[in-house]
Simulated scan of single mutants.
Amino acid sequence: MVRHTGQPAYLQIADDLRAQIRGGSLAPGTPLPSTAKLAEQYDASLSVVKLAVGVLRTEGLVIGQQGKGVFVRDAEEPPARSDELAELRATVEDLSRRLAKVEEQLATSTTRRSGRSSR
């Protein structure tokens, strides 16, 4: 139940779900109830519940699996997000180096062409 405390409803829901996860009533690997069930349970809109679950995802407490639901993450398991982030950073750095080489080659080839036409 969301209360009129001045704290946004989605944060109240996130706080309650977080407490359940840390307290063990939502154990690792356990699926969260559906968004519709949580909305009914907390007497809140679907968008408010989605924001609350988003907070827990950002904190790494839950993980979503496409088409399956949202599950409580094992505290021992490192969040996949950090691994994905490191991989993305490495890919961006590699692409940046490759792009710099291509730009250098283009600049060199353009300089050569303009040098030939001025003769």
Rank of each mutant, 00 (worst) to 15 (best):
M1H: 06
M1C: 00
M1R: 05
M1T: 04
V2F: 02
V2K: 05
R3K: 11
R3G: 00
H4Y: 09
H4T: 13
H4L: 12
H4R: 12
H4F: 10
H4P: 00
T5A: 03
T5C: 00
G6H: 04
Q7R: 13
Q7F: 07
P8Q: 11
A9W: 08
Q12C: 04
Q12R: 02
Q12D: 03
I13D: 01
L17R: 02
L17Q: 02
L17H: 03
R18A: 06
R18K: 11
R18H: 09
Q20Y: 00
I21P: 03
I21H: 08
R22C: 06
R22E: 15
R22S: 11
G23W: 06
G24N: 12
A27F: 12
T30V: 06
T30G: 01
L32T: 01
L32K: 01
P33N: 02
P33Y: 01
T35V: 14
A36V: 12
K37S: 11
K37L: 13
L38H: 02
A39Y: 05
Q41F: 10
D43M: 07
A44R: 02
S45A: 13
L46R: 07
L46Q: 05
L46G: 06
V48K: 06
V49M: 08
V49C: 04
K50F: 11
K50A: 15
L51Q: 15
A52R: 03
G54P: 03
G54S: 03
G54V: 01
V55K: 13
R57Y: 00
R57F: 01
T58R: 05
T58P: 01
E59W: 03
L61C: 09
L61Q: 09
V62F: 05
V62Q: 02
G64D: 02
Q65I: 15
Q66C: 00
Q66S: 08
G67C: 05
K68E: 07
K68N: 02
G69A: 10
V70E: 10
V70L: 10
V72E: 13
R73V: 06
R73W: 13
D74T: 06
A75E: 07
A75Y: 04
E76C: 08
E76N: 12
E77P: 02
P78V: 13
P78G: 04
A80V: 11
R81M: 08
E84G: 10
E84Q: 11
A86Q: 12
A86N: 10
A86I: 08
E87S: 09
R89A: 15
V92H: 14
E93V: 15
E93N: 12
E93D: 15
E93T: 15
D94P: 01
S96P: 01
R97L: 15
R97I: 14
L99M: 13
A100W: 01
A100K: 04
A100N: 07
K101A: 09
V102P: 00
E103V: 11
Q105N: 14
Q105A: 15
A107C: 05
A107T: 15
A107Y: 10
A107Q: 13
A107G: 12
S109Y: 09
S109L: 15
T110M: 07
R112I: 04
R112K: 14
R112A: 14
S117K: 11
S118F: 09
S118E: 11
